[in-house]
Design a protein around this nucleic acid. Structure first.
Lengths: 213, 213
DNA sequence: GCCCGTCTAATCAACCTTGACTAGACGTTT
DNA sequence: AAACGTCTAGTCAAGGTTGATTAGACGGGC
């Protein structure tokens, strides 16, 4: 009998997507290995503590969890100068996981934090893959706008008037995102950014972000 | 070498704001007393489980927490037909808390879920108060757009190109929200919705949403 | 030399969220 | 009449998030 009868979902680690996880894994990988404080500093310099609302405690937790899940390895370092610290490095499974998380974040609507995180890690994907995921997002947004317009015709009378009016705001956000996603797709097609399959990417030059230790 | 200096900033305000708390308190109050399943059903009919991503477990937790904090009272009811249930009723402090949460949610930017929840509970405020809060939001959004435009002139070179491009998306969202907030302010000024100081509001006719028990 | 603030680095308990599970009542299909 | 699904109503343990706190090193003023 198969001991693991339960079907594992697309993303390992139980399934629940998390922008924290993606950003932390991504920074560790792009830095070619990092300890907690380094991840924290880098995220802050990107402004991620503002737009992704990540707090230091969550970063350390995410690192430990990812290490327990086999996505990172832990290397304890004695504190020659300053406190002790732990160096984390991405495993092969960890790199695969990042790619899956970015693909998911680009497609998934109604999750702005995850989208922001995915954009931050965009160069983890090949150019054609990134374009495909962004186009999928465009398609989903268009479908949702059509759906929402249909609901506008015969509204649910159980919902109070002011709650129904929220729909206007959501539709506005969806249209904004739609245009932005289209322009991102176009920029990618025109060769913007250094993607995973371009010369000078993390694949050919890992550790290009490596920070002073 | 303060190259990666981190500012530890303590956000003012005692308890962390929560859309769940606002919606649960609000539904209990508007229903003139309700048990958990009733709150859950009402939120679902408003589509709140989709746009606020609230799950049943969180509702029961929020009810218990609010009762422990003195914002709701608990009345155990024997299960004459069906399982036992607990009836919750808003206290005076609970009502004050809802009003404060709505005011906060209307002003606070960068928290779409809280805004949605605040809009759902908009009639808890008086008309002039609601207009003031929405106008404050307009002012904040305008200030943030100016700030963001300034940052666009001389960008931080530490941030990768694609991360800087996120700013375009967030600016788009801010402009969408700005126009929407202005139109909401205008609608309120023109007398739309039944607000707390209007005849027929929860103040003069509590329990107008009361559901069959 | 000593004190003070800041930087580096991380831990911890309290709190919130969530998927999974329990259990009775009621209708209806076999 | 037994089996089955569904609705009502809620509990619980596992896991993620956060503010508070700890602790050594380092530079600058007194």
């Amino acid at each position: 009998m198969g001991e693991f009868a339960i079907e594992t979902r697309g993303l390992s680690g139980g399934g629940r997507v998390s922008a924290t996880k993606l950003l932390v894994l991504g920074i560790v990988h792009l830095s070619g290995g990092a300890h907690g404080y380094q991840v924290r500093s880098e995220l802050q310099s990107w402004g991620a503590e503002i737009w992704a609302k990540i707090k230091p405690g969550s970063i350390y937790h995410a690192l430990k969890k990812a290490a327990a899940d086999g996505l990172l390895t832990e290397h304890a370092e004695p504190g020659n100068s300053g406190p002790e610290r732990v160096l984390y490095r991405a495993t092969a499974r960890g790199r695969d996981e990042i790619v899956e998380l970015v693909r998911d974040g680009l497609r998934r609507t109604h999750d702005p934090t995850m989208l922001d995180a995915a954009i931050a890690m965009l160069p983890m994907l090949t150019r054609t893959d990134a374009i495909a995921q962004v186009n999928e997002r465009v398609a989903r947004l268009e479908a949702e706008l059509v759906e929402q317009a249909k609901g506008w015709e015969n509204p649910n009378p159980d919902i109070p008037e002011h709650v129904r009016d929220q729909a206007e705001l959501w539709a506005g956000h969806a249209r904004t995102e739609l245009e932005w996603a289209k322009s991102l797709s176009k920029r990618l097609s025109e060769g913007a950014y250094t993607m995973a399959d371009d010369p000078g990417s993390w694949r050919t030059a890992p550790g290009h972000l490596k920070m002073p230790v």
